[in-house]
């Protein structure tokens, strides 16, 4: 059974714990500039939206790579970069429609979310459950549950915050 990162922007406070957990996991330092996941703020911080690789089934980055440095990990379903093969040509960064694969100026290769081998650090670090790691076939479960409640005339259980 595969799992996927589920992101609920309504719960995100823009604390960047995820970016620090990611950079610490991947680079051993706290450095949002090297995080694979990014949080974007809109309207003076009213909206905060974490964004990272969706691990597309038909992954354009994977098809674009001229040296086959990108491979799917069949266990986690993540598309991973083989740093030995990657030549840093950046074609995959152009191919990705979401911008979630990027050049790394220190390694001179590309870097992207690999779901930390099936135990993503960002989801563990998120204090508000804005990022969770769930069965990929049931990413709609929580929203379905909320709709079910609403359908029975019950108030929509708001997030704990505002």
């Amino acid at each position: 059974m595969h799992k996927a990162l589920l992101i609920d922007p309504g719960k995100c406070t823009s604390c960047l714990q995820c970016e620090m957990a990611c950079s610490f996991e991947k680079e051993g330092v706290f450095n949002p500039a090297r995080s694979r996941i990014k949080v974007f703020e809109f309207e003076h911080g009213r909206y905060a939206i974490p964004y990272t690789c969706t691990q597309c089934s038909e992954a354009w980055c994977l098809h674009a790579c001229p040296v086959e440095a990108l491979k799917r990990n069949e266990t986690t379903n993540a598309v991973e970069v083989n740093e030995t093969l990657c030549v840093g040509c950046k074609v995959c960064t152009i191919a990705c429609p979401f911008g979630t694969i990027n050049y790394h100026p220190v390694s001179k290769k590309v870097a992207k979310c690999d779901l930390c081998g099936g135990d993503p650090a960002c989801a563990k670090a998120c204090p508000t459950d804005a990022i969770t790691y769930v069965e990929d076939s049931w990413s709609g479960l929580e929203r379905m549950k909320r709709s079910a409640l609403a359908g029975h005339g019950r108030p929509n259980p708001q997030q704990e915050t505002a």
């Binding site: 406070t13 823009s14 604390c15 960047l16 714990q17 009213r46 909206y47 508000t128 915050t161 505002a162």
Partner: peptide, 28 residues
């Protein structure tokens, strides 16, 4: 701040955090 006024307007729309903060006391 959390209650709609006579026009249905609610003052508070979200709470937000400073860097690294797991409290998020900031009001938007």
């Amino acid at each position: 701040a959390r209650t709609p006024n006579e026009h249905g307007h609610t003052n508070l729309v979200a709470n937000k955090a400073c860097f690294g903060c797991t409290i998020a006391c900031g009001r938007i």
